[in-house]
Design a protein around this nucleic acid. Structure first.
Lengths: 151, 151
DNA sequence: ATAAACCCTGAAGCTTACTATAGGGTCAAG
DNA sequence: CTTGACCCTATAGTAAGCTTCAGGGTTTAT
């Protein structure tokens, strides 16, 4: 079933509807993610239902953590579905899930280190001369232990 | 007790000991985090025990998630302990903890969205024409629901 | 008819934490 | 005495995802 194109949206209208800025939309275009279906006589971008749907896809993917570069690849899969397998698509989400898990694990580590610091501190109104937080950040630090910290 | 300064380190030595690059060290200096205690006759940076300790503080704080800008503030607290309270320091870590918690929560949301997508997909060898992942990213999307997603 | 609110392009600027490059001085070994 | 490993400064480039600016047309309301 082919839906009839009721009317086109101008960039400002689409941006408002999507809750993003006009500039972002143009930026997405410059990055090859989405372009207007056509232009009006005066050169204004005109977006059809199809573009609106595509923008939905983009924002949805963005929301669940894909970068614009990755979304561009996803859009390629989307467009040429028949040339790709479900496996391929699933591998993509799988990799992303592992990536996110890694980020979470890193943050959880940071958080627990911070929480121990935080809880050891009296938080009192006296001067920080003997503040345990500062002391811990300071003191028992050997450089060797640090290197492996960053991803 | 005042420790005697045994000898100074040159920038390459300190960098090697800390497991960071010489350029990073100079960058930290340019950002006002740490500078050499003095210079040798030929202009080489010379770092004393005090600087080494300070760098330890910096890397430690970095490891638990503080940005360089934040570390600069922490160094201010550290230096003028007597003009600040434990409360102040503790507030700082508290805020950072909440920030990290927020990031974790966002990532967890992303992950669970991704996992439902991922699990719904057959992952089979057939073409992605009916791939549930692509369909879900595509279809039931209304712009209104998106806006509140980003921090 | 004129001002506000749109639209266009192209280029530069922002943030963070560096890395790299250009151009040049210093120092120890062979 | 030259090669290589250091050190210095200053400037530019990187990634990501925009935002802002400069300079200029268009459309809509008053």
């Amino acid at each position: 079933m082919v839906a009839m194109q009721t009317h086109y949206l101008k960039i400002g209208q689409l941006a408002a509807r999507a809750g993003i800025s006009v500039e972002s939309l143009r930026y997405y275009e410059s990055e090859g993610l989405i372009s207007a279906n056509c232009r009006s006589e005066n050169g204004y971008r005109l977006y059809s239902d199809e573009s609106i749907q595509k923008l939905g896809f983009i924002l949805h993917a963005k929301k669940i953590g894909f970068s614009l570069k990755e979304i561009k690849r996803l859009l390629g899969l989307r467009l040429n579905r028949d040339q790709h397998t479900c496996e391929e698509v699933k591998d993509y989400t799988g990799a992303k899930i592992r990536e996110i898990e890694q980020k979470i694990a890193d943050l959880v580590k940071m958080k627990s280190a911070l929480v121990s610091l935080h809880e050891a501190c009296c938080g009192g109104n006296e001067t920080a001369d003997n503040c345990s937080i500062l002391q811990t950040l300071e003191a028992p630090f050997t450089f060797e232990k640090i290197e492996s910290g960053d991803s």
